[in-house]
Amino acid sequence: MSRSAPLAQAAVSAETMRGPVAGGDRKGETALGGGPQMDLRRKPRVAETLIQGFLFLCGAISVLTTLGIVYVLGRESLLFFANEEVNLLKFFGGTEWQPAIGRFGIWPLVTATFMASMVAMVVALPIGLCIAIYLSEYAPRRTRNILKPILEVLAGIPTVVYGYFALTLMTPLLRGIFGRDLVEIYNTASAGIVIGILVIPLVSSMSEDALRAVPNTLRQASYGLGATRLETAVRIVLPAALSGVAAAFIVAISRAIGETMIVAIAAGAGPNFTFSPFRAAETMTGHIVRISGGDLSYDSIDYNSIFAIGLLLFLLTLSLNALSQWIVRRFREEYE
């Protein structure tokens, strides 16, 4: 087999046939431009650069949002604390929040917030975790495919509807069970329970993800030693997924603390330093909503005070979220 023939042909074709698609004879000149000697230099692509710049700005807006939040909350809080009636000591030491008479102690709002959140966690954590274990370790595939959308519906219902639920069903229920004398019409327990229901899907779906991420080999090993399904789920899989479950719990707490409409509707409209979940009390978020719902004049001490509360709320939820992310990152590869 001789190779010279094709080579010779190649030499010719190099001159004449480069470019055109199918046997064209447009010597070098092609429809797309660019003949034998071509210019590979970079062309300025203005549109391309502009678009990229615009896209970067889109990403940067999220940073601006954060900066905006920090600036707004920080500035108004500074103005609040610059007021002679308030100082940090009174703010964090006082147990009375009565703007009308110049009392700005944050504790009544904080205790109410924590009480509602505690009740919520008492409801949501066990139930959410049990649901997660059931979905991940017990439920057949078909059942899971039915149950998950139902939980998603629960998560997709607006919070104001939950507030309505708390006030018109949960509160009468509690009053029926514990007696009308003990349970006030507005109370943190009812709000807390309903917040708990609201965050169940959050706990269950995040925990389920963590449980399902545990490699199957661990389960097989456990079964291989004669463990039952329960023992495998609770002693092997759950510990292996502990970081993810813990992260879910923390996110749920953060969510409960920031929840607003349920407490605004069902927990009560007036700061109240109490530790009874059946009494009316106003949470931080509930207070912000009530105060700003009225006609608020800018730069009044009321106006500034809600930003101080907001700042506390922001820092609280932010650190909880950061903690949960840290846990996930820190302990992620333990059982890989």
Binding site: L32, L40, R41, R42, K43
Partner: peptide, 14 residues
């Protein structure tokens, strides 16, 4: 084609 002034887009067309 790895010159700074060469446009990779152009190169890939060729």
């Amino acid at each position: 084609i790895y010159d700074d002034e060469v446009d990779p887009v152009e190169v890939r067309r060729r």
